[in-house]
Computed example of a mutant assay.
Amino acid sequence: MSFLLQCLSHTPLKGYVDPLPDVVDEAGRMVATLRAEVEAFDPEIVFLFAPDHYNGFFLDAMPQLCIGTSATSVGDYMTSPGPLDVPRDIAEACARHVVAADIDLAISYRMQVDHGFAQPLEEICGSLARYPVIPLFINSVAPPVISFRRARQFGEAVGEFARGLGKRTLIIGSGGLSHNPPVPQIATAVPEVAERLIAGRNPTPDARAARQQRTIDAATVFATGDSPLHPLNPQWDEAFMANLARQDWAALDAYGNAAITAAAGASAHEVKTWVAANAAMNAATGGHYQVQSRYYRAIPEWIAGFAALTGVTA
């Protein structure tokens, strides 16, 4: 039984609004290194913590935490559409374990996932369905959102379950650090946008393309430095990564949601996937693991504090 942790930022803007070629190559080499490590590890099961961006989860019933017993990628931006390889029996057993740990968990037998799940599966695992995967959703865009403490507790429950499987286990956290792309909020949305936030599943190809183009246009402006969007915050990002590297759970639990939004942007709540993944690794290894920050760069073209972090058994 062995465990590997890989946390990685995702961005839908790769290939649409790119930084200088040297930066693209640098980030690409880092991702290739992570992928080589995953290939060498050859996981028997993957636990993937990731958010959604109003592509699979909507305000008709927005769970804070959800496990999929079956999942399909919607194929947004440049990710592939199609099914993930979700072992239903393991996902159901994981759900039972998490609920027994007093975590209020939703379960989906028809989960739809977007680039937040698909990009790490394709980039560091090789494809959507190369390895069996348990998809674990954390709401990161629709207030109210859970605390860092609750994300940690969720991750711990999943890690305890993973430890009992006796398999080579890859744990992934997928989320951008400081960033604030133009994700609409129900409190300020005009009626037609509010309806999409409530019940926007399975849009037409034209509607999806138009939505994606708005994000691409916003990134183009953001890269010029003349944008109303919240700026990236490298200092906040690096302090957060340092807390993970130190496994300073008290410091992480103390992060407040309002302070996260104010300092790092509304979508920085995606880092709760990193908190949950690290907590899962901590529980799975009994605390016997080491964390290494692998990469960090603020990339305005991708509207992201773009980063990677690895954890290996000590």
Rank of each mutant, 00 (worst) to 15 (best):
D85S: 15
A268R: 02
G287D: 05
I198H: 07
F41T: 00
M62E: 06
N282K: 05
S140N: 07
I186W: 08
H97N: 13
N55M: 15
V31L: 13
T204P: 05
I103Y: 02
E37P: 07
R110N: 15
S178V: 15
E26C: 03
G286M: 06
A280I: 00
V74E: 03
A277D: 09
I138L: 08
P135G: 10
R214F: 15
A283V: 09
H53K: 01
S70N: 11
G126E: 10
T224I: 06
E26R: 05
F47P: 04
A187I: 11
T224N: 09
G176S: 14
A307H: 12
I107H: 10
D217P: 02
A71P: 05
G200C: 09
L8Y: 01
Q290P: 12
N180K: 04
T313S: 14
A268I: 03
D102P: 14
I198P: 07
G155F: 04
G159E: 04
H10Y: 10
G173K: 04
A307W: 15
V141E: 09
I260L: 08
W302G: 14
V31W: 11
D22M: 09
A91P: 04
D60G: 13
R96A: 15
V46H: 07
I138K: 01
I146G: 02
P87V: 14
R208S: 07
A199V: 13
G164L: 10
D18H: 01
F222C: 13
A194P: 02
H230E: 10
R168T: 04
P81C: 01
N282G: 07
V24Y: 02
G56Q: 01
A93D: 11
G305F: 05
A308H: 11
V86P: 05
D76Y: 00
A194Y: 01
I171G: 00
V141G: 04
A284R: 00
A280W: 00
N202S: 12
L244V: 12
Q213I: 13
R152W: 07
P228I: 07
E44S: 12
N257W: 05
K167T: 11
Y16Q: 08
K14A: 14
V99Y: 06
P12W: 03
K272Q: 03
R150F: 03
D114F: 00
I198S: 11
I124E: 07
L136W: 02
C66N: 04
P234K: 06
S178G: 13
C94T: 06
A279W: 05
A93I: 12
I124G: 06
D206K: 14
E156D: 12
R214A: 15
A262S: 09
D104I: 15
L229Q: 14
W236S: 05
D76W: 02
S147R: 01
V24P: 02
F3Y: 12
A245Q: 13
